[in-house]
Design a protein around this nucleic acid. Structure first.
Length: 421
RNA sequence: GGAGAGGUGGCCGAGCAGGUUUAAGGCGUACGCCUGCUAAGCGUAUGUGGGUCAAAAGCUCACCGAGGGUUCGAAUCCCUCCCUCUCCGCCA
């Protein structure tokens, strides 16, 4: 969430940002409520201060054996007024708090304005592989080791099963990602819960906006996580860290659950878009002045993996309309899938600045002046498996239907050089 | 799921038959004094958030797990919920 004082002082900037992000947030209503709240708060404080003094007087008069009836009558009237003012203040506060949660983060200044078509190309890596035969799509290569039909029978569409060597490859990818980030990139591994409560989901900004896109457990009012970002970022919620504790670098493997009802067509076939998938997530909490660099660092860590897998990819900077609610700036890594003949998004790396930290109240104490300030939070996929699975299988496929195992994955697959499905 | 005991500041911990608690005391931390050095000792300071203020200081309000309630007045009494611990039950 944004700082209320900032909204007050920069109303036009905020309105412009809301519009650029295609969001709906009533900034004028927020300003009016803010004004009303401060007035009411002042009144309340005045009366309350009087009441406290007078109430204590009753106590001391009683001890001295003096009469208290007249004072009690006087304070009684104040109590009435306070009850009334408190109720009004509460109503204003509730509405204001709810509205503040609907204001998206401001895009960073260098983010291009506009929709997806305005996403900026940043760089790409290696050429697309040349094939001596017509490359096939992953469903064809993997056959029934990727079982969409039985997944649909057991659960519903969008819940495929991996079996045999497909499951083995999936597991190899996850282990490879984790080892890379833990052993080479300095991240601490975490195994968080896959189910979180409403407060946690609000902390990272999924709620209140995206409730319909998530699986909810009604009996407990819990949610299945759509990404490890949620439990991992909230790990330090309501804490004040030391500056020396920063940066905090966590990586976590979790399954991710997304309802995202209403996605149909070509994009949903095969592993391209599913309701449950696996992802290794990178999360950092940094000092404000270090977050820009951290964004590049997370991006580099994700790219390192795609490079070792020897997949052609490009990095895009998302335009304002394509940015998520909480993000100030996001890079997407898109790998080339030769069978599908298109780019697949395998990682989004975002800097949320203090937006999530403010919601979840994640702070740190600065060394120089001992003051408390919000940390910056960032995260990026490192990486999501289904689309990487697709790109690996399609890029490394052989004409006979097997795949050559990329060298970096061989230690995770009994040093096999080929895999058949 | 059942029974019991708890949840207080960075930490420990008192207060809990409602009334100068503006949360004692200790530890830790910071600064100062003292001191060959270190330790000890002495002194001072030390929460978060809101409001007021150009800003700071000051003043003020809220916060003792969360939310309600009773009362002139709630850390303290009542209700609901959450969490932790002990024992029992169930269970991969």
């Amino acid at each position: 969430m944004l700082d209320l004082k900032f909204i007050r002082d920069n109303a036009e900037t905020v309105k412009q940002a809301v519009s650029n992000k295609n969001a709906a947030a009533d900034v004028d209503r927020i300003l009016a409520l803010d004004e009303a709240k401060r007035t009411k708060q002042y009144e309340f404080d005045q009366v309350r201060a009087q009441q406290k003094i007078k109430s204590k007087e009753i106590g001391s008069r009683k001890k001295q054996g003096l009469e208290v009836e007249s004072v009690m009558e006087e304070v009684s009237a104040m109590a009435e007024a306070i009850k009334q003012l408190g109720a009004e203040l509460g109503e204003i506060t509730n509405e204001l708090d709810a509205l503040l949660l609907t204001v998206p983060n401001l895009p960073q200044e260098d983010v291009p304005v506009g929709g997806e078509e305005n996403n900026a190309f940043i760089r790409e890596w290696c050429d697309k592989r040349e094939f001596a035969f017509e490359p096939r799509e992953h469903q064809e290569i993997c056959g029934d080791t990727l079982d969409f039909k039985r997944g649909a029978k057991i659960t519903g569409s969008g819940f495929p099963l991996y079996r045999g060597n497909a499951a083995l490859l999936e597991r190899a990818l996850i282990n490879y990602f984790l080892d890379k980030h833990v052993l080479k990139h300095g991240y601490t591994e975490m195994k968080p819960p896959f189910i979180v409560n409403r407060k946690t989901m609000t902390g990272t900004g999924q709620l209140p906006k995206l409730e319909e896109d998530m699986y909810r457990i009604e009996t407990e009012d819990f949610f299945l996580i759509p990404t490890a970002e949620v439990p991992v970022t909230n790990f330090h919620a309501e804490e004040i860290l030391g500056e020396n504790d920063l940066p905090v670098k966590y990586c976590a493997y979790t399954p991710c659950f997304r309802r995202e009802a209403g996605s149909y067509g070509k994009e949903t076939r095969g592993l391209h878009r599913v309701h449950q998938f696996n992802k290794v997530e990178l999360v950092q909490l940094t000092c404000p002045e270090d977050s820009a660099e951290a964004l590049e660092s997370i991006t580099a860590s994700a790219e390192a993996i795609v490079q070792e897998l020897r997949l052609h990819y490009r990095v895009m900077k998302l335009a304002t309309g394509d940015l998520s609610f909480a993000s100030a700036i996001t890079y997407d890594i898109e790998v080339w899938a030769p069978g599908a003949k298109r780019y697949l998004e395998v990682s989004s790396i975002s800097n949320f600045k203090d937006f999530q930290a403010r919601r979840a109240s994640i702070r740190y104490r600065r060394n120089d002046d001992n003051k408390v300030d919000f940390v910056h939070t960032l995260n990026g996929s490192g990486l999501a498996t289904p689309r990487i699975f697709v790109a690996v299988v399609e890029t490394w496929q052989n004409e006979d239907g097997s795949i050559t195992v990329p060298p970096c994955l061989r230690p995770y697959l009994q040093n096999r050089e080929r895999l058949e499905f």
